[in-house]
Computed example of a mutant assay.
Amino acid sequence: MVWLRMFIADRLIYVELPKTACTHIGKLLALVVPGEQRGKHNKPSQAEFDRRPVFLGSVRNPWAWYVSLWAYGCQQEGMLWEALTHGRGSVRGLGWRAAPIYAGRRWLHSLRQRPAEWQRLYSDVQDVQAFRIWLRWLHEPARRWDSGERLALHACADRVGLLTYRYLDLFCRGSFRSIADLESLRAFDATANYLDHVIRTEHLEQDLLMVLERLQIAVSDEQRSQILGGGRSNPSRGKRSRWQDYYDQASIELVAQRDRFITERFGYKSPTL
């Protein structure tokens, strides 16, 4: 399970998908909308759905997202890093009470897991080969239990990427555990997705201002200048300036195949070498 945060205001709730500039978006929202940051949410509660706020989410270019996720782990931070590099037989973070069957299977798998191999892949944020191996391993069927993600329980586990899974799991109501093919996942998203607006990280400032305008939330000239000022909060440290530098053709195609749902949904194009 990935613990998540939400920015909650009277009229809107921003549900944070990790590594999509969440900290920065939350700070910008706080400039113009009175609200509070709440942590350790999986997704909005029924009570929050019942009061019918406007729901916001954010998404990111999948190729950039994986680099950011890996680089964050190179800082020895994040629940994915912890799950991949934990000691064999560890029960930390398994959630026995909430999901005993899943936790049991995850624990049994951990006895065969090789955390030292994952640790080596996180040892140098400049190492493009380490990133490419990490990306491939993350999507290998034989290693799908390593990450601690419940994607391992889903019929689509061998077909979709981690970003696609997290997007659907966080931003949709209901279960897609038995859905295996892409067309059916698209249909599920069309009916179960509760978001009213999605902010693309690459167009963050413009998308946010557009959302505020649609909600008829007043933005002063000073606030607009602050929003358009750019900058990011909580960036991963030490990685190369261009995320494209981490990819070769094989890794580009892997993301294109596994996260086709995201690329088609939001118009992202494969990078060129």
Rank of each mutant, 00 (worst) to 15 (best):
D146W: 04
I227H: 02
A250Y: 04
H203E: 14
R240W: 10
H154S: 01
G73H: 06
Y246L: 10
G229P: 09
W81A: 06
Q46C: 02
H203M: 13
L108P: 03
E140Q: 13
D248K: 02
L69F: 02
L135H: 01
Q244N: 14
D245V: 03
H154V: 00
V219M: 12
I8W: 01
E213I: 06
S270H: 05
Y246P: 09
H41S: 04
W96A: 07
F261V: 02
A9M: 03
S184W: 09
I262K: 00
A250W: 03
Q226L: 14
L4A: 02
G57S: 03
L84Y: 06
M210I: 01
T20P: 04
T23E: 13
E77F: 12
F176E: 04
A47L: 14
G89C: 09
V33Q: 08
V91R: 15
Y66L: 10
R258M: 13
L204W: 07
T191H: 13
E140R: 12
V32A: 11
L80Q: 08
S251F: 07
Y247G: 06
G161L: 03
G231T: 09
R112E: 11
T20D: 05
I199N: 05
L168Y: 09
L182G: 08
A218D: 14
D169M: 04
S241I: 09
I252Y: 07
Q119T: 14
C22F: 04
G267N: 14
S58L: 04
W3P: 09
Y194D: 00
R112A: 13
N193I: 01
I227N: 03
A83N: 15
S110A: 11
K43M: 06
G95W: 04
Y247Q: 09
I179L: 15
Y194C: 00
R200I: 05
G89Y: 10
N193Q: 12
R214V: 06
D245P: 05
D50Q: 15
L12T: 05
R224A: 03
L151F: 00
V160C: 08
H41G: 02
I217A: 10
Q119Y: 05
A180M: 13
W137F: 03
H24S: 15
W107K: 06
E213Y: 10
R51Q: 13
T23L: 09
F7T: 00
G89W: 10
G267V: 13
R224V: 03
R136T: 12
W63N: 00
R265K: 15
R38Q: 08
G57I: 00
L138E: 00
A103D: 12
T263Q: 08
G39V: 12
R200W: 07
R51L: 11
R258L: 14
F131C: 02
E117K: 11
K19E: 12
S220L: 13
L94A: 03
S270R: 15
F261H: 12
P100W: 03
F266V: 06
R186Q: 15
R106S: 12
Y247V: 09
W145Y: 13
R132I: 04
F55K: 01
T263C: 15
S110L: 06
E149L: 15
A71T: 10
G230P: 06
F55G: 01
C74W: 08
S178M: 02
G148H: 06
L153A: 09
R51N: 10
I199G: 04
V91I: 11
A30L: 07
L69G: 00
W96T: 02
R237D: 01
S175K: 05
D181S: 15
F49E: 01
T263K: 01
V219L: 14
A71N: 10
Y246Q: 07
L17V: 09
E205H: 11
D50F: 02
L254C: 05
